[in-house]
């Protein structure tokens, strides 16, 4: 595939969702991985690299959810954790700390969905990085977002807070790293079934002329 110009959001989401499925995530989670990556992509974040790092080695586990602390013995999956955050947001049962979170930047789009649901914003603290996430936007310094993007695994503290600002969201497609795209393509290709002689013979156009 030739990717020498910008992906549309739809295309990027499809690529990421397919890669997530290829990496072994369940279908519903793979859909959310695609949507989450698309949310980040149109806000200028290189979600392709983050997603590849989040899913490309052995699948990471779901969080073990205590009342106020979610985490795991090994680094936990940000997609599964993020999806659970949105699910539990509806119950007003969110943790204040998520430990051992793989690719913590990937939690942002899920916090945005939770913020939308709860009508609040989330203040996020990770090491000394501080950002706020509203339903539509990430508020904070570009350097902090960049630093968060660079973290492979970290503890994240989240606090629901009153909305302080509602910046307009103007789509700004991220510049994506070609090697990450290639890695996503390769993961996505794991969802394909190789052809066999019998599948070719029973295929959609098999045995009939399509040039008449």
């Amino acid at each position: 595939m030739n990717h020498n110009s910008a992906f549309s959001q739809t295309e990027f989401e499809t690529l990421c969702g397919k890669a997530a499925r290829g990496a072994g995530l369940d279908w519903g989670l793979a859909e959310e991985a695609g949507k989450a990556a698309g949310w980040m992509y149109i806000r200028g974040i290189n979600a392709a690299s983050a997603l590849v790092k989040a899913i490309s080695s052995a699948p990471s586990p779901a969080p073990i959810c205590g009342d106020d602390n979610w985490g795991g013995q090994t680094p936990i999956c940000p997609i599964h954790t993020g999806a659970a955050l949105v699910d539990y947001a509806g119950l007003n049962a969110l943790p204040s700390r998520i430990t051992n979170l793989r690719q913590p930047v990937m939690i942002i789009p899920f916090l945005a969905m939770a913020a939308d649901l709860m009508g609040c914003q989330f203040d996020l603290l990770c090491n000394d990085i501080r950002l706020s996430v509203t339903a539509q936007a990430i508020i904070g310094a570009a350097d902090d977002l960049c630093a968060l993007t660079g973290l492979d695994c970290a503890t994240v503290q989240i606090t629901a807070a009153a909305i302080t600002a509602q910046p307009d969201h103007k789509p700004q497609f991220a510049v994506v790293d070609p090697s990450a795209i290639a890695a996503l393509d390769a993961l996505g290709a794991r969802t394909y079934v190789p052809a066999t002689e019998s599948s070719r013979q029973s295929g959609a156009g098999a045995g009939t002329s399509d040039n008449d």
């Binding site: 989670l29 779901a62 969080p63 999806a83 699910d87």
Partner: peptide, 9 residues
């Protein structure tokens, strides 16, 4: 869904 993500879709 936390226990059985395969049913999410």
């Amino acid at each position: 869904l936390l226990a059985h993500p395969q049913h999410r879709l």
